[in-house]
Design a protein around this nucleic acid. Sequence first.
DNA 1: CTCTCATTTCAGAAGTTTCTGAAAATTGTG
DNA 2: CACAATTTTCAGAAACTTCTGAAATGAGAG
Lengths: 195, 195
Amino acid sequence: MWRQLVNLTPTIQAFVLHFGEMGSRWGINRTVGQIYALLYVSREPLCADQIVEALGISRSNVSMSLRELQGWNLVLLKHLPGDRRDFFTTPDDVWQILRTLAEERKKREVDPTLSVLRELLMQAPSGEEERFAQTRLGEMHTLIERLTTWYDDVKRLEPERMVALLALGSKVTKFLDTKDRIVSLGRKRKEPAAP
Amino acid sequence: MWRQLVNLTPTIQAFVLHFGEMGSRWGINRTVGQIYALLYVSREPLCADQIVEALGISRSNVSMSLRELQGWNLVLLKHLPGDRRDFFTTPDDVWQILRTLAEERKKREVDPTLSVLRELLMQAPSGEEERFAQTRLGEMHTLIERLTTWYDDVKRLEPERMVALLALGSKVTKFLDTKDRIVSLGRKRKEPAAP
DNA sequence: CTCTCATTTCAGAAGTTTCTGAAAATTGTG
DNA sequence: CACAATTTTCAGAAACTTCTGAAATGAGAG
């Protein structure tokens, strides 16, 4: 089935193959997944021909796949002095990779839906059927807006704080029982003043 | 291009078409996306033939697509008394839908990778190349574990608390500056006792 | 300007997924 | 148990995606 993939150590081989298979579930294709995996575990940046060699796929396929990875901002281009080939790596901070991935997926998978929903909610509903549908669209819109607002807020955190936030998890909500503490956080929310 | 989709009100039509197109980006196919969208905005449960009618696709395609949606736990089956056809709806709590979606995507897109990583990290590395690769795999593993642990913790929250947690966002980390407060939350963590 | 090395583009071949109609299976009813 | 009303399965057709080799383009060195 594959011609090469044989120069690679067993661990790297298994990882590359796995990413290739997962690629399809992730909406990127097998080759793109394999190339990304290979770059991710390689100590040195690789040039296109090394990838051809390692994965046993055509030069043009590598070229197109690298282009796609660049479109996702998931690879970095390096130039060695005195060599005019392009060399590729992945960023080496996994948190950075996560941010990029989240950002790109949001852009492709969430933002278009959000804007369609906004648009449809502007229309005046005609008839019962539409009134009900708009209610449902409104619920979906509110949900997605809440999630993206949270994401926009949280995505800027440095890794250290991000780890802390994750570690805290749902325990955060313990604070929410004692409302005055929330106020002390400085969040200004217009809320119907409760007794 | 499509035969039907004409009985539908403009809003519903637009929403259904959008979900169909997004379907591909989401790894579900167009028909599945359309059916889901249609059920989501319909006031009453629909039976297969009504879906055929509304979307202008073949009966067998509807059957297979509904089956796939059931595999994702995204539709509910209803039976009307005195009618032996199956009627379908989506759950009507959007938070429930979100949870289901997250759960299913995690199962398909994250868990397999996590288990491959765990397995590969058990192997003793042979050579420098593998040592480096394993370091990288370890970083990825740690990251994913942190995210999934957080997710497992948070997913059980009722919608109200979930909303509160999202609204709080990164402000949570303000607490982390005053470490004693965190301890008061009852989290037991083994940490090298700092001065 | 031209030669060479490297990358990109592109038309079509290979492979995969989706969709259909027809036939088979299932299920409740008289 | 036979029937009619449904749903499911399945083989092949249609549509789409991925991959390739060959040809075109680009870019630095002399």
